[in-house]
């Protein structure tokens, strides 16, 4: 069985014939999650570390303006979150969402999900 909905040709995931559809989906999901998580986690980790460290680096003014390091970092966090969220949504819609419907179309005789366990 093969997932019928293919991602666009310019996608970054090689279509390995030997891989099962689920492992392909898993790789794509992991890649998308990581590309969303890493920039946000870096910003958050930096802020938490700077808060926890002694000294008052976050209160340091940037170039004699009213803007401090802390405020700039939080602003960067917010912008990074909104930008990566938009990218994550679009890429998920393109690469992962089509996989939900493909096997059902390919296998019309699928049994109800209750029969496969795990959802009691």
């Amino acid at each position: 069985m093969r997932l019928s909905a293919q991602p666009p040709k310019h996608h970054r995931f090689p279509d390995h014939a030997a891989q099962s559809p689920l492992s392909q989906a898993r790789r794509r999901a992991a890649h998308l999650d990581l590309s969303y998580l890493v920039p946000n986690a870096l910003c958050f980790g930096t802020a938490v570390t700077l808060i926890a460290l002694p000294g008052d680096l976050l209160a340091t003014r940037l170039f004699s303006t009213d803007m401090s390091v802390g405020l700039s970092l939080y602003l960067l966090q917010a912008v990074a979150l909104l930008a990566t969220a938009r990218r994550f949504d679009h890429r998920s819609a393109r690469l992962l969402d089509p996989l939900q419907h493909a096997p059902a179309e390919a296998n019309a005789t699928a049994v109800p999900v209750q029969q496969i366990g795990g959802f009691r």
């Binding site: 069985m1 559809p21 689920l22 989906a25 898993r26 999901a29 992962l96 996989l99 939900q100 419907h101 493909a102 096997p103 059902a104 390919a106 296998n107 005789t109 699928a110 049994v111 109800p112 999900v113 029969q115 496969i116 795990g118 959802f119």
Partner: peptide, 14 residues
């Protein structure tokens, strides 16, 4: 199921 949904996972697991 958490990756591709119940219907697709059912088809795979049939």
């Amino acid at each position: 199921v958490l990756l591709v949904g119940r219907t697709a996972a059912t088809a795979v697991a049939t």
